[in-house]
């Protein structure tokens, strides 16, 4: 394992120190592993809290700031944070109008956030509502599994709902918006290589040089199938086809993200975006906005994912609204 670390067991603690030093507009609660805004939003506005295992940076800490999240809870690498962390984050950012928890659909994340909401209700301190993101079309038979995983759409949802929270919408309206975004977006990912969890010291799975894994999650989970390496054009089809097969986009404006898994250079991500955009055009799908880069990663995994959101004028305008986080920044 070749990594820029001091000690495999201190990766998260050391990284949080760097995040705090790099971003004066963020604060870090090191004991509870919470990243939150240095300047809280106005009293009477709904706050957004997300969180999950680490190793997906910039998600979620990189999306804390104006126009997106108010706080992010960081768990160990690929391990959900605990309810006490989430509850502490919730109390830290509450501005009297309730807190929305944004949770990716993984068994551990869902249970821990559920317990955090119960603890908050027991203390009767903060009104908490939860939206669970589950956009991964790679998971078939979702009735017989833990359900579709939450992947790339989480980034878009945090941006869109964050913008709406900034406008002063109430908790009910934000829950409805978040559910709408979750219903209208789909993602599919692929890996060229596995990833190496620092504490494990070796790649999570073996992927031969001439093979790739289609339909992966973001923790080195297995994909839908393992197939021989193909051209970017063919890979783009393997990712876009299942998305188009799962949701009809009609003539709606879409927001499209071509996301890197952490170990793929930007030049390849742009190359892939070109292929994806070409396929969408051939299918008559209108791309209104696009985002290309590493936004929800899987440590050092090489590969990418595609997310397509069926938007409308409201969502496009929320997308364009100002945002000022370390991961996304425009319009302000």
């Amino acid at each position: 394992m070749k990594k820029l670390i001091n000690d495999p067991d201190r990766v998260l603690a050391d990284a949080l120190r760097g995040i705090e030093l790099a971003h004066p507009d963020l604060r870090v609660d090191h004991a509870n592993r919470i990243i939150y805004r240095a300047t809280p939003k106005d009293h009477g506005t709904v706050a957004l809290v997300s969180g999950g295992g680490s190793g997906h940076e910039p998600l979620h800490g990189g999306f804390v700031g104006f126009g997106m999240l108010d706080a992010a809870c960081a768990g160990e690498v690929f391990t959900s944070p605990t309810p006490d962390q989430m509850q502490e984050a919730t109390k830290t950012v509450d501005r009297g109008a309730g807190v929305l928890h944004i949770v990716k659909n993984y068994t551990g994340d869902v249970m821990n956030f559920e317990m955090a909401a119960e603890l908050a209700a027991m203390e009767a301190s903060v009104e908490v509502r939860t939206v669970v993101v589950n956009d991964d079309v790679a998971v078939q038979d979702s009735l017989y599994t833990a359900g579709r995983r939450g992947v790339g759409l989480t980034v878009l949802l945090e941006k869109l709902v964050g913008a709406a929270a900034e406008q002063g919408r109430d908790l009910d309206e934000l829950v409805a918006l978040a559910e709408k975004v979750n219903a209208e977006g789909r993602s599919m990912g692929m890996a060229l290589t596995s990833c190496t969890v620092p504490a494990a010291g070796k790649p999570t799975f073996d992927l031969p040089e001439d093979q790739m894994e289609i339909g992966i999650g973001i923790h080195g989970e297995p994909g839908r199938h393992r197939v021989p390496l193909a051209s970017a054009k063919e890979i783009a089809e393997m990712l876009v086809e299942p998305i188009l097969g799962d949701l009809s986009f009609g003539d709606a404006p879409t927001i499209v993200m071509l996301n890197g898994m952490g170990g793929t250079p930007l030049i390849e991500l742009y190359l892939m975006y070109g292929e994806v955009a070409g396929i969408l055009e051939r299918h008559g799908v209108t791309v209104a906005r696009s985002l290309v880069g590493n936004y929800i990663t899987s440590l050092d995994m090489a590969g990418c994912s595609v997310t397509v959101l069926r938007a409308d004028d409201e969502l496009v305008s929320l997308w364009d609204a100002p945002v000022e986080t370390s991961g996304l920044r425009w319009g302000r």
Partner: peptide, 15 residues
């Protein structure tokens, strides 16, 4: 257990 384990087994054994 809930506050020290994380993942799914923390909430399950904790509960």
């Amino acid at each position: 257990l809930v506050t020290s384990v994380g993942g799914a087994s923390g909430p399950l054994y904790g509960t």
